[in-house]
């Protein structure tokens, strides 16, 4: 499956990146392709283009704050989880996706 994701936590210093790492690691394990955009203290990195979003089947938001540039995701199905869940239990997210 082709996935996109956004991670963002309130301070954007650490958890944003931990969640991103877990999503990338676990997605690969399950044979998915994923691109994860981080919205942290360094701003938006690894930014998702409209084309990338439109070409994906599902967006995962692992966030504790509102996602910036939300209008990009108007047409895609979104699964939202807490940042902590993405870090501690990424498997459960992917088992839901199937």
């Amino acid at each position: 499956m082709k996935l996109v994701a956004v991670t963002a936590c309130p301070t954007g210093i650490a958890h944003t990146y931990m969640a991103a790492e877990q999503l990338e690691k676990t997605a690969k394990k399950h044979g998915h392709t994923i691109k994860v955009e981080t919205q942290g203290a360094m701003g938006i990195e690894n930014e998702l283009s409209q084309g990338e979003i439109d070409g994906a089947e599902l967006a995962i938001f692992a966030v504790g704050i509102p996602v910036r540039n939300m209008e990009r995701f108007a047409k895609i199905k979104i699964v939202e989880v807490a940042v902590q869940d993405a870090i501690k239990n990424p498997e459960s997210i992917f088992s839901k996706i199937g």
């Binding site: 650490a14 931990m18 790492e21 981080t38 360094m42």
Partner: peptide, 23 residues
């Protein structure tokens, strides 16, 4: 992190450490 830290070099380092800790 120092409030006066210039640029985001430190942030980058910590983000890297955070990712690494997932392994």
């Amino acid at each position: 992190i120092s409030a006066s830290a210039k640029g985001d070099e430190h942030l980058r380092i910590i983000a890297g450490l955070a990712r690494k800790l997932m392994h």
